[in-house]
């Protein structure tokens, strides 16, 4: 289940303009410069729509959005 989510999130991240194909589930999306102010919001909108979860602003932090693995964990936590 979680691996399926990771794959879908990874696919979306790779489609971002600032990304490239070498990104994997453990790539640091912040230090690698993949995420900026607009792509963070795009990513949150994608997660909400794709997985039907509500992600409150307080969850949109560097810790939660650092890698595909942490993103997937965030979605899991909010899916309950």
């Amino acid at each position: 289940m979680s691996e399926g989510k990771q794959a879908e999130i990874l696919e979306f991240i790779r489609s971002l303009e600032s990304a490239n194909d070498s990104i994997d589930v453990n790539t640091d999306l912040i230090s690698s410069g993949v995420l900026d102010s607009l792509s963070v919001m795009e990513l949150v909108a994608f997660l909400s729509e794709k997985f039907g979860v509500t992600i409150p602003a307080g969850d949109v932090t560097p810790v939660n959005l650092r890698t595909v693995v942490t993103l997937s964990a965030l979605v899991e936590a909010r899916s309950v």
Partner: peptide, 12 residues
């Protein structure tokens, strides 16, 4: 430093 990108960090 990352507060301008992450609303959670800015609001906290």
């Amino acid at each position: 430093g990352l507060a301008t990108i992450f609303p959670g960090q800015l609001i906290s």
